[in-house]
Design a protein around this nucleic acid. Structure first.
Lengths: 233, 233
DNA sequence: CCGCATGGGTGTACGGCGTACACCTCTGCC
DNA sequence: GGCAGAGGTGTACGCCGTACACCCATGCGG
């Protein structure tokens, strides 16, 4: 008989396959469920095999961050600096919305990865190309903070879908009594046409909020730029 | 002889002692080092004893958050809304600077604690007392984001103190070549009189950056308020 | 054609974590 | 005097990241 063909010999692992499998796993199960053991299982491999391709879990997370940063679209050529920055940031936001775990992972990195540095460099470049001083650009970057990569800390994190739908509108009654000012705001948000459930997490148009704040900052920066502002006073 | 006095019988645990010991431990060793086992050891008790006072680690962290929120000073009476909000937020920032781990823990909470809700309610109240509409206040709160409790995500997290001091100024040369725009900004920051080390993390006056961004937002909000802005357009 | 180095996958094991569960021992009250 | 319940204990389980020794297929120099 023919010499038995050896078992099909799965294509060998490499850093890229590991990284993308990790992203897929996190997409599927959230970043809390991402463990070296689980990832290995997904790849049909023993946990320690991963360590031939990433030094440790921290470096795995760094790599995953750069995968996501790589999804950010390149800058639009020839746009006004404000639109260039705006477009870049909104693209970053789209990438992060595709991977809800990514913002938490980015926050957790103790040092910026090369991909992150490259992205930041390009955003800074967009400011500078618009004629903003290094000084103002520097402060603008700080002011944008995590917003440059498309996310902000939610004040009221999204509750799970089992939110008690029995309430008439706005906050549960007891809470409305204890936190009257929050309630006054919840009432507004809950009265909007779409998704009028509890404002605590739901009920807010996140995209609107994001762009509102982004434009507030960019407009403020533009104003300072036009009046020749300097941090020296 | 006298009836042997029983061993001094340490004062019994309670939720408050547990919480404050946890805060102290995190202050001392960082929040990554905070474990139920370590905390128990600090309290001279076996790990499982803690579970008589907090349901689990998540609830311990919630409790710690409220301890920190409790350190925020009460609002100044009779101030203009902008100063009231500003003062509240800067006080929150001082609390968080005293407990460097606290911002990361706050970010990690999946639902707001009662203390946090109370604090947010009071900030919203300050806006409303100044005559801002519920609508505008709502968007203002979102725009402030994590800044309301006194922190922002650093773009360049602070590096450990072993930063290579051999570099002349600004970024290490290789990095300056790869990220020219970052370098242009680093040069500015590094040229300031005090702490002129690498701008990546060090070299920035965090308090200035924080107030710069805070005022940018508050000024923008004030402008919108004065011109009767509404999200409806 | 042999032998050996090397890169990639394996197996076992360790020390840490959060915490379920059964237990024991004081305390105060009827 | 006895009993309930609060508070502290001990043991054990199942996860985690990862160190370390191993093993085996490959390909290359002789």
């Amino acid at each position: 008989m023919a010499p038995q063909t050896p078992p099909p010999r799965r294509t060998p692992l490499n850093r890229d396959r590991v990284l993308h499998a990790a992203v897929a796993l996190a997409d599927r199960s959230g970043h809390e469920a991402l463990s070296m053991r689980g990832l290995a299982q997904d790849l049909g491999v023993v946990p320690m095999a991963l360590y031939k391709h990433v030094a440790n879990k921290e470096q795995l997370l760094d790599g995953m961050v750069d995968v996501i940063v790589g999804e950010i679209e390149p800058p639009a050529a020839g746009a006004h600096w404000k639109n260039a920055v705006r477009g870049r940031i909104l693209s970053a936001r789209r990438a992060l919305l595709r991977h809800p775990w990514a913002s938490r992972v980015m926050e957790s990195r103790p040092a910026p990865t090369p991909g992150v540095l490259g992205y930041l460099d390009s955003v800074i470049g967009a400011f500078r190309a618009g004629g903003l001083s290094a000084d103002l650009t520097h402060h603008a970057m700080h002011a944008l903070g995590s917003r440059v990569w498309g996310f902000t800390q939610d004040l009221f994190p999204a509750p799970p879908d089992d939110a008690d739908a029995g309430e008439p509108a706005g906050l549960p009654g007891e809470m409305a009594a204890r936190y009257p000012h929050i309630a006054s705001i919840a009432a507004i948000a809950a009265s909007r046409p779409h998704d009028g459930d509890s404002v605590v997490g739901g009920g807010c148009d996140d995209q609107f909020e994001f762009e509102f704040a982004l434009d507030l900052l960019l407009d403020g920066i533009e104003r300072l730029h036009r009046q020749g502002w300097t941090s020296a006073g």
